[in-house]
């Protein structure tokens, strides 16, 4: 496996302070390697967006990071902890090293400025030396990169379709050739055909440019063919992570298995769609032990009292799971 580019270490995020705080992300360990696509799946409310906002320090109030580290490895130079960057360092880091495509694709573009303005301003902020014509030329290239004709530069966001707007956002995310692109449900608001188009385009761009992607979705079936590895989130924790094919072929965690039976597979063998009974846990009243145990069809004796740790199952060091069905080795692998 190639070297890491982004290492999330024991990251915890709370909403609110003191007694009223709820913990939406719990001691998450997750590593993104250079050039890979890491899928992050989980039901809505499991904390995926909070994780993405937390590691980029974009949490809306009352969100606060209550612990952990986010180590970013620049191409040259020692790793830096994103969470301790000064405001000026953070501004320089943002978009140049890690860009984001948000869930609210429709509203990600400022309605009163032209597409060109919004592509150019990020280039100007980070590369002040570049001349105006050079910036515009770059903006034109970016549109072409995502398959939009350059004369759309003068359009306003409302003049573009939803799919085009999301492409613009993807183009914008690549403006500074970042090492990491985080995508939070980038295609959720689009129809299936548009989803497929954008995903295959994204895969192709990734081949060509070599950035790493953290791809967040509630639809696990989207990830299976598109990502290298998949991590599953439940109740603010990562409960399983494995190479995509293995996770798809043999899910170890009962929750993963439930997710696989919640969406129709885009390709491959059909599965019976059973869904997952019950509803996601209430953050204010997390069950003891494994947070999934009230909904788990295979719960065992220790499940409702002891928290299973995330670690490789006995027979496969290449993946990790947090479930008493597959007790981890004592040494927790990263």
């Amino acid at each position: 496996m190639s070297e890491p580019v982004l290492e999330i270490r024991r990251l915890s995020v709370d909403y609110g302070l003191g007694d009223s705080a709820v913990r939406a992300v719990r001691e998450v360990d997750l590593t993104l390697h250079r050039g890979e696509v890491l899928g992050l799946a989980g039901e809505s409310g499991s904390g995926k967006s909070t994780l993405a906002y937390g590691l980029t320090r974009l949490l809306p109030p009352p969100g606060v990071i209550s612990g952990g580290q986010v180590l970013y490895h620049p191409v040259d130079g020692p790793p830096v902890d994103v969470l301790t960057l000064s405001p000026a360092q953070l501004r320089a880091f943002r978009w140049a090293e890690t860009s984001i495509v948000f869930q609210g694709a429709m509203n990600s573009l400022n309605p009163v400025h032209k597409i060109s303005t919004q592509l150019v301003d990020v280039i100007r902020a980070h590369q002040p030396g570049l001349s105006r014509p050079a910036r515009l030329a770059r903006a034109r290239d970016l549109l072409r990169l995502v398959g939009i004709s350059a004369d759309r530069l003068d359009s306003y966001p409302h003049q573009l379709s939803g799919g085009m707007r999301q492409r613009v956002m993807i183009g914008m995310a690549l403006a500074l050739e970042p090492q990491v692109v985080i995508m939070d449900e980038p295609t959720t608001a689009l129809d299936v055909v548009m989803q497929r188009q954008i995903l295959s385009q994204l895969a192709e761009l990734r081949e060509r440019l070599g950035f790493a992607v953290l791809f967040i979705t509630h639809d696990l079936s989207l990830l299976v063919e598109f990502s290298d590895r998949i991590a599953i989130m439940y109740g603010g924790r990562i409960v399983e992570q494995a190479p995509a094919a293995q996770l798809y072929g043999a899910a170890l965690h009962p929750y993963t298995d439930g997710l696989l039976h919640s969406f129709p597979a885009l390709r491959g063998p059909r599965r019976e769609l059973t869904g997952i009974p019950g509803s996601p846990p209430d953050l204010r009243a997390m069950p003891d032990g494994c947070a999934f145990h009230p909904r788990c069809p295979r719960a065992l004796a220790p499940c409702d009292s002891r928290l299973p740790t995330l670690g490789p199952p006995a027979d496969d060091p290449g993946r990790a799971v947090a479930c008493w069905l597959h007790p981890a080795d004592e040494v927790v692998a990263r």
Binding site: L58, P60, F93, A96, I100, N107, S108, L109
Partner: peptide
């Protein structure tokens, strides 16, 4: 959202 994006753009 576009304000969050503006922040994210640095």
């Amino acid at each position: 959202d576009y304000i969050t994006v503006a922040h994210a753009k640095g």
